[in-house]
């Protein structure tokens, strides 16, 4: 469904992502794991065509359902964005206008992508999505301003919006890293429910190997990235239990676990 074919991304001539390839089939999950500066966010920005100023894909191609996203007319890519390909950010609060209500933005979003819906229909659709994300009292959320919601609630709103049109591909950039652990667990679980229900393919960027391992099944892939390159890729089992690259091993050794080594004499 999505094929990223050996792309290199440069910022003002400096490569930040080199010879990156990825194949994603329908319903599959790919996790990009790595530390800051590894290029993982660049991958999903390149797919969406949202590289910041100065950034270009200097080599390779990105194909969505067989058609190039890089060499097609802008209107084609725009028609996919927000409908077939959607995105969740680390803080959905940052993408929501602080001075309009959740409801007015959600309705605007829905009607921008489906002109056939009336405001009332769009409202109902939005409220239904919020309920699916288990937000209590959807009407209340619709009438709230972003600052009146907790970070976890805002993130649920972001996911509800991103899932409204049952996208074929969901790009998620550290969607739970700013959240508390119990909220993170709820949201990851709900994302996976929607993924299974709608057969949505997901590319998730995370620095949390535990989240990556949970979200990827044995038929899915985890890509470990470092400094713009993929150092290792494999399924959950291969990455966690049979890592080959020294960097993957270093990452695994650095993560404390509940049954692992304790560092002090107790």
């Amino acid at each position: 469904m999505l094929k990223v074919d050996n792309i290199t991304v440069e910022y003002d001539g400096v490569p930040v992502l080199e010879n990156f390839s990825l194949d994603l089939s329908t319903g599959q999950v790919v996790c990009l794991v790595g530390e800051s500066g590894s290029g993982k966010t660049t991958v999903i920005r390149a797919i969406l065509g949202l590289l910041p100023e100065g950034g270009t894909v200097s080599k390779g191609d990105i194909l969505f359902e067989g058609k190039s996203l890089l060499h097609s007319e802008a209107s084609y890519v725009e028609s996919l964005r927000g409908r077939d390909i959607t995105m969740i950010f680390q803080d959905s609060g940052a993408m929501i206008d602080p001075i309009s209500t959740i409801g007015s933005q959600f309705i605007e979003y829905i009607r921008a992508h489906d002109r056939s819906l009336s405001k009332r229909q769009a409202y109902q659709r939005a409220a239904q999505m919020l309920t699916q994300m288990r937000l209590p009292d959807a009407d209340n959320v619709m009438h709230s301003y972003p600052f009146q919601l907790s970070g976890g609630m805002r993130q649920r709103v972001g996911i509800a919006m991103a899932m409204t049109f049952e996208p074929k591909l969901l790009l998620a950039d550290e969607p739970t890293s700013a959240l508390d652990v119990t909220t993170q667990a709820q949201i990851v679980r709900q994302m996976m429910d929607l993924h299974i229900y709608h057969q949505t393919s997901i590319i998730i960027v995370t620095h949390n190997l535990g989240v990556a391992a949970y979200m990827s099944d044995l038929s899915d892939r985890i890509l470990v990235m470092k400094k713009g390159r993929v150092v290792e890729s494999g399924n959950r089992e291969e990455i966690l239990h049979h890592p080959k690259d020294p960097y993957t091993k270093e990452l695994l050794a650095a993560i404390p676990t509940m049954e692992g080594e304790v560092y002090v004499d107790q």
């Binding site: 119990t182 679980r189 535990g210 989240v211 391992a213 676990t257 509940m258 049954e259």
Partner: peptide
């Protein structure tokens, strides 16, 4: 709620 590397990934996380 912890995504622990030693957890049982076949079970849904309890949140």
């Amino acid at each position: 709620a912890l995504f622990d590397l030693d957890m049982d990934f076949s079970k849904p996380i309890e949140a």
